[in-house]
Design a binder for these strands. Structure first.
Lengths: 201, 201
DNA sequence: AGTATTATTAACACCATGTCTATAATATAT
DNA sequence: ATATATTATAGACATGGTGTTAATAATACT
């Protein structure tokens, strides 16, 4: 599966130092104001060394964040399949989404900074597509064909995906006022039945 | 209301040229790759002149986009109040949102580039807050207190606002496959009743 | 008309970028 | 353990953008 052919420990160390340096700098300053110089200084490496591994700041950024998002998806994947034996149309929190919130909550500082927008859109777009993927498979398990949907499937997926994304940001901005399980439950309810208690006539 | 005390025609001209230059450059290149030099060259102005009006590229960007978003809100405001004599819980498209989609659709090239994320997050955040404001007032007209809501009002607002935002992006990315009225109708339905035809037990 | 404001021009120091060379340090294989 | 290959460092370089200054030209205002 992995194409890592035992890389040189020096390379591994260097890249890790650069990634850590960038992440720690992002938590303090504005991404756009961070220079390659800053990164290598924080990493206690020579500036030239940077260019032996990455073409520029964005390259390092992209690779670092992709790696972190892989951790997220791996942790969620370990929970099981999304559509697996679960009433997706109920209001019970789905384990997949519970785990998703758990993971994000455990690194809330980082995710808040990244999602808030001060950084690259790449990260946000990736998170969006991860969310939409889970939602898509959940939706497919409930409504295999488009018969039961009032609106085109593609739109529903984007609708719910964006809504989830936005509420996650709200959750992070407000210092996680609810547990991961509670958040998942709220979102399940909103996605399935809408915000109102009584069904409109 | 307005504090414009008849500014010098040279100032007006210069600022307009700079704004136009930036917008046109954004449509072609990547925002981050655009320099002050590029802007002034496109505007056929001296680079020093730029600094007589704006502190940096982001400053110009912020002011330009704020101006364009003001056009949007003005056009929507001319339609009337959001809560005005309308069954917000029905599935009929609300005139406010129809007009919103109309306006965005008429400048779809621009909005697509701006919202897609390659640019500043400032614009996207602003659009989000505009959307949320309309949704908030619509929601308040249906449910003045929190009794009829299954989830905290603040979350519902963010949920629907983000969902709308995401679907608008979908709409733009897919070259406006539906009319503004159709889009508004779809979103009203999703927001009120959720995606399913039959109510889950 | 004369005065005030604005745009231009040329020049400046500063800093980040990306690249190059030669040299030192470290891994790996024999 | 020694030789070889790979990687990190050091210093230096040209390039290009930034933001500022001072002097001059162009334009608006009264």
């Amino acid at each position: 599966m992995k194409k890592e052919k035992r890389l040189d420990p020096r390379v591994k160390r260097t890249r890790q130092l650069l990634k850590d340096a960038l992440i720690s700098l992002i938590m303090e300053n504005d991404y756009n104001l961070i220079t390659v110089r800053d990164i290598t200084e924080r990493a206690t490496l020579n500036r030239v060394t940077f260019y032996l591994h990455y073409s520029d700041k964005d390259d390092l950024m992209k690779q670092s964040t992709d790696e972190l998002l892989e951790e997220l998806t791996d942790s969620v994947a370990s929970i099981g399949e999304v559509s697996e034996s679960f009433d997706f149309r109920g209001t019970q929190p789905h384990p997949t989404f519970v785990q998703l919130f758990e993971q994000i909550g455990q690194h809330s500082d980082f995710y808040l900074v990244m999602l808030k927008g001060k950084v690259m859109p790449h990260f946000s777009l990736k998170v969006m597509s991860i969310l939409t993927e889970y939602i898509s498979s959940g939706l497919a398990s409930v409504e295999p064909d488009d018969q039961g949907l009032t609106v085109q499937r593609e739109i529903v997926e984007r609708y719910i995906g964006s809504a989830f994304f936005g509420v996650i940001m709200w959750w992070l901005e407000n210092d996680l006022p609810y547990t991961a399980k509670q958040m998942a439950a709220k979102l399940m309810r909103l996605a399935n039945k809408g915000p109102y208690k009584e069904i409109p006539s």
